[in-house]
Simulated scan of single mutants.
Amino acid sequence: MARINVLAEDVDLDAPFLIEGLPGVGLVGKIAADHIVEAFDMVHYANVHCDGIPPVVTYPEDDSRLTTPVRVYADPDRGLLVLQSDVPVSPAAATEFADCVSGWFAEEDVTPLYLSGRPAEKGTEPPALYGIATGDGADHLERAGIDVPSEMGLVTGPTGALLSHALENDTTAVGLVVESDPQFPDPEASRALITNGLAPIADVDIPTDALVDRADEIQRAKEQLAMRMQDVEEESTEARPLRMYQ
Rank of each mutant, 00 (worst) to 15 (best):
L113S: 01
L115R: 06
L115P: 04
L115Q: 06
L115G: 03
L115D: 10
L115K: 04
S116Q: 14
S116C: 15
G117M: 12
G117F: 12
G117Q: 05
G117C: 10
R118I: 08
A120F: 06
A120D: 05
E121I: 09
E121G: 12
K122L: 11
K122G: 07
T124C: 00
T124G: 09
T124R: 08
E125G: 00
E125C: 00
P126R: 08
P126I: 12
P126W: 13
P127W: 08
P127Q: 08
P127M: 04
P127L: 10
A128N: 09
A128R: 13
A128L: 11
L129T: 07
Y130A: 01
Y130L: 06
G131S: 08
G131C: 07
I132N: 06
I132E: 12
A133C: 03
A133N: 04
T134R: 01
T134D: 03
G135Y: 03
G135M: 10
D136F: 00
G137M: 04
G137A: 07
A138S: 05
A138I: 02
D139G: 00
H140V: 03
H140A: 13
L141R: 00
E142W: 01
E142S: 07
E142D: 10
E142H: 05
R143L: 06
A144Q: 11
G145W: 03
G145I: 00
I146R: 07
D147T: 05
D147S: 13
P149M: 12
P149E: 09
P149D: 05
S150R: 11
E151R: 13
E151L: 10
E151K: 11
M152I: 12
M152S: 15
V155P: 01
V155K: 03
V155Y: 11
P158R: 12
G160Y: 12
A161H: 03
L162H: 04
L162W: 05
L162A: 12
L162S: 11
L163C: 08
L163V: 07
L163F: 11
S164K: 13
S164F: 09
S164R: 13
S164W: 02
H165C: 02
H165P: 02
H165Y: 15
A166D: 12
A166N: 04
A166W: 08
L167H: 15
L167N: 14
L167D: 15
L167S: 15
L167F: 15
E168S: 13
N169M: 04
